[in-house]
C-alpha cells in the first residue's frame, strides 16, 4: 500500500512523503477539530498543531493500529489539551453576552445562522452549546465516540457511519455501537433533567447561578 511506504519515508524524515500522507487525513482532522472546538479560528490553529505533533511523533508509530486511527487520537488529544488550556484561563462572569466564552468549555462559539429570528438564534445557540459542553464532560471513551460520530456524520460516503467509526477508532463494530448508545442515553438523561429543572421553575441551565 502506498500509505505504508509514505509512513516509512516520513519516519525517515522525508517531508514530501509526510505532506502526501497528511493531505489524505486533513479533511477528517478538520472535522474532528471543529466538532471539538466549534470555533473556526481555534479549529484552524488546532489542525496546524495536529500536523506538527504528528510530524514530531511519527517515529513512534509502529503499525499497531491503522494510521488513520492513530492520527485521529493525536487530533483528539490536541483538541482536549486546547480546551483544558482555555478552561484554565477563563474568568467567572455573571452575565453571559452572546459572544463571550462559554463558561463550561471556555470557548467562544461561532455565531448562529443569521436567517433565524433573534430569539430562535439565542435559544438554538444556547441549546447546542449546552449539548456540546455536555458531550465534552462525558467519560473519555464515550466522548471520543460521540465526537467521532459527529465528525463522520457529515462525510458523504457509502459505508455506514458505524463501520467508518470502527476504522477510525480502531475498535470492533459492536463496541462502537454500544458506546455510542450509552452516550446517547446519558445525553438524553441529562437533557431530560435540565428540561425538568427548567419546567420546575428552577433557574437551571443558567450556569452563572451555580
Amino acid at each position: 500500500m502506498a500509505e505504508w511506504d509514505d509512513i516509512l519515508e516520513a519516519q525517515a524524515g522525508d517531508e514530501n512523503a509526510f505532506t502526501r500522507l497528511m493531505t489524505a487525513q486533513e479533511a477528517f482532522i478538520w472535522r474532528v477539530c471543529y466538532a471539538c472546538l466549534r470555533n473556526r479560528e481555534e479549529a484552524e490553529d488546532a489542525l496546524i498543531d495536529v500536523m506538527q505533533r504528528v510530524w514530531q511523533r511519527i517515529g513512534i508509530y509502529r503499525g499497531e493500529c491503522a494510521f488513520s486511527s492513530w492520527v485521529g487520537r493525536v487530533a483528539r488529544n490536541v483538541c482536549i489539551d486546547r480546551i483544558r488550556a482555555r478552561q484554565a484561563e477563563k474568568r467567572p462572569q455573571h452575565v453571559i453576552p452572546l459572544d463571550a466564552p462559554d463558561p463550561d468549555t471556555g470557548l467562544a462559539i461561532d455565531p448562529p445562522d443569521p436567517s433565524d429570528g433573534p430569539e430562535q438564534q439565542l435559544e438554538q445557540k444556547e441549546a447546542l452549546a449546552e449539548v456540546h459542553s455536555a458531550i465534552l464532560q462525558l467519560p473519555e471513551e464515550q466522548r471520543d465516540v460521540v465526537l467521532c460520530y459527529i465528525a463522520l456524520l457529515s462525510e458523504g460516503e457509502e459505508r455506514s457511519v458505524y463501520q467508518r467509526m470502527a476504522d477510525r477508532l480502531d475498535l470492533p463494530l459492536g463496541t462502537v455501537q454500544s458506546r455510542l448508545n450509552r452516550a446517547r442515553r446519558k445525553l438524553a438523561a441529562w437533557r431530560n433533567n435540565s428540561a425538568q429543572n427548567a419546567s420546575d421553575g428552577v433557574k437551571g441551565g443558567r450556569r452563572d447561578d451555580m
Binding site: 466538532a35 449539548v131 460521540v146 456524520l153 446517547r184
Partner: peptide, 12 residues
C-alpha cells in the same frame, strides 16, 4: 439528543 448530534454534524 439525536437531532442535536445531527445539527452539530451539519454545522461543521
Amino acid at each position: 439528543t439525536d437531532a442535536d448530534l445531527r445539527t452539530l454534524a451539519e454545522e461543521i
